[in-house]
Amino acid sequence: MAAAEETSKSSEAFPMKGGDGPNSYTKNSIYQRGAVDVAKQLLDKEIAEKLDIEISLPSNTFNIADLGCSVGPNTFSSVENILEAVQLKYQCQGLDSQIPEFQVFFNDHILNDFNMLFKSLPPNRQYYAAGVPGSFYGRIFPNNSIHLVHSSSSNHWLSRVPKEVVDKNCPAWNKGEIHYSNSTNEVVKAYEAQYAEDMECFLHARSREVVSGGLMVLIIPGRPNGTPHSKTLPNMMLQLLGTSLMEMARKGVVLEEKVDSFNIPMYYMSPQELEAAVEGNGCFSIEKIENLPSALADGASIETRVLGYHMRAAADALIKQQFGEEILDELFDLYCKKLEEKPSIFESGKGINFLAVLKRKPN
């Protein structure tokens, strides 16, 4: 099939807040970094045990792709962890002289701030760096070209808002809500269907790109098996953001119709849902699915204002496109107040990060 026909399906692009200002993703992603850090030991073990270093390496080059890399610095930490683990695998097998060169492909939407990403590349890195723009819900690499795929805190973003939820004539119209967590069954089903379609596309694309015996390592923000969507902590936080927007609509700061047509394309899957998608695809074996320990140290309090800034860094482009930039300060001041008023959601809400290690079956 021609490359043009294989390239990514139509996808909406809402990158993280670029630059290095106070509201940027660079300055507001410590929780995502925490997930990468707590996954390191597991990642080392899985690469040591599961990676086939006998796989053919054209030009003695090991190709790594980080999907949804954003602007750094978290992606650089992930890549460093992977490189160390792969090098250690070679050394432990007495193959020091055969350690390959490393090529790292940093992938994100075309609107991602790649200038910021490359400006902050580690100067002493042990790899060659390249940027690959495009949605990971379609093809972004040639056939059988990638040895290890990594993605962290990215797979909960859908390719688009389900079209049914913004259609006034559809039973799934999500009037007055910006997400599925507290909505009707029709809205929930529309989001579930969009997730299933997207994950099928994601796995199909990777099945063509990853070499036989290659690994895919995913760190996914999700919900524990059996937990209702409405009791999932990230969903409860998005619900409060929707409440903040509706409050501003009642005050006349934003139009209510604008809120009615605004939905956030995030879906928090359970490990069981991922397992079903992988089994349905059939090209990968599930080597490991494990909940990660909390990125917060024991006894550490959750700083609600920090979480508010994290939400702003993630949703900035979405909100700006729908409502304009001028509402952002007022909206997130209100949102942070609501988070502070409802500390109970951090105790009652269930949320996890889980690690999934998938291995490409022989072609």
Rank of each mutant, 00 (worst) to 15 (best):
S285Y: 07
I302V: 15
K258D: 15
E257M: 03
Q321N: 15
G324F: 10
F76K: 08
E330G: 10
F76N: 05
I352G: 08
L88T: 11
L339M: 13
E341S: 11
K251Q: 15
S152M: 04
M269Q: 14
M269N: 07
A295R: 12
K337S: 11
G19D: 03
E303T: 00
G94L: 06
N144E: 14
G213P: 01
E303A: 08
E279S: 08
K27L: 13
S135H: 08
E177D: 07
F284E: 06
G214T: 09
L42G: 12
L67R: 04
E6K: 14
K163P: 15
N263V: 03
E177M: 10
P73E: 01
N169S: 15
S344N: 10
N235Q: 04
P265R: 03
K337C: 07
I264W: 01
I178H: 00
C69I: 05
F332R: 05
G222V: 01
Y335D: 00
L88R: 12
E46S: 13
L307Y: 07
V149M: 10
N182W: 02
L88W: 01
S159G: 13
L148Q: 00
K337N: 13
K320R: 15
G72P: 03
V132Y: 03
M248G: 02
C201T: 02
T61H: 01
A85M: 05
Y128Q: 12
K45E: 14
S207K: 03
N169R: 08
K45S: 11
N28W: 05
G222I: 05
N28I: 06
A48E: 14
A314I: 08
G134Q: 08
A13Y: 12
Q239H: 15
I53R: 02
S10M: 10
I55L: 12
H109F: 14
C201R: 12
E164R: 04
P22E: 11
P271D: 06
D329S: 10
P271M: 05
R312A: 09
R360W: 05
M266K: 10
P265M: 01
Q321G: 15
V149T: 09
T7A: 14
L339C: 08
H109P: 00
M236Y: 02
A13R: 06
L51D: 04
R305L: 06
R139W: 09
Y195N: 03
P100L: 06
T75N: 04
K40F: 01
S348Q: 14
T243L: 13
W157Y: 11
E256C: 07
L328I: 15
C69G: 01
S301M: 06
S135V: 02
A190S: 15
T75L: 03
T75V: 05
N225M: 12
Q103V: 02
L117A: 07
N81I: 12
